[in-house]
Write a protein that binds this DNA or RNA. Sequence first.
DNA 1: ATCCAGGTACCCA
DNA 2: TGGGTACATGGA
Length: 298
Amino acid sequence: MRKIILQPEKTPFHLERTLECGQVFTWTRTGETWKGMIDGEVVTLRQSGSVISFNGITRKKLIHYLNLDQDLPGVLGAIRLSISNSHAGIPDPVFEAAATFASGLRIIRQDPWECLICFICSQNSNIPAITKRIHALCKKYGEPGQDGQYTFPTPAALSRESPESLRLCSTGYRAEYLSATARVILTDPMFLPRIRALPYSDAKKEIMQLPGVGPKVADCVLLFGFGFYEAVPVDVWIRSIITSRYPEVDLCKGKKQSCSYDDIADWCRLYFGLYAGYAQQVLFASRTCLPEICLMEK
DNA sequence: ATCCAGGTACCCA
DNA sequence: TGGGTACATGGA
């Protein structure tokens, strides 16, 4: 195994939190070892303290995939500064508790196509079920590689399958979305590459044209697949955390009752700043461990 | 057994 | 524009 030695102060990183925080579903864990594929190659990863052991990929590609070249302390500093600016200099105990709990979590750089398919599969499911579903799709429609790993199914592979066939991977009603979205991407191979060059709101509008992609899936793909840090995916957990832990905020801007997706996402961008997407993921990763957050009000 | 989950499309006022 | 509902499936 090759090694990367991290400097914890400068390059905080936690492999388990990074791969198991709900941003990616393609990795398989065995004890302290994770196996998966990056860029078509079978990769093995392990972490012991400040040492990452790896093989199957170049150091450079791994650093890029794990986003180890991002200045994470700088990102956290920017979030804290934004909080401080919109909060009269008062530190935020909710965010600080989450940041401690999720320390070393990084938003990785996923392949946009894989990310898109995974988050179409994610809707209205829990993380264990999503993971199982994705692995079933890879096994059935991907190419077998070494070590029992399968490549992620290509747009062509998913396009030639009927929705009925896709349903066998317990994708349920999402099978139609997968099939239709795969056809769009196959027909227009520049659809996803074009997204990268757009400003966030245009990129979101574009990607929401795809069947099965609403605001939440769009934001996940933009954040995890394209690195748009303004993207704030709002699911039931984030909604609950924001509305229950920041009750003083007038999220709904005087509207009737429950605030909209954009009310919550816009407030997060205002409050957490340019890296609101990262703040969101830190809160999501801490959803069951910040006491009282899990008491979902109904 | 019941409820819920990294939601979306569609319909209707 | 905004609110209600069907949708398939499996985990807790």
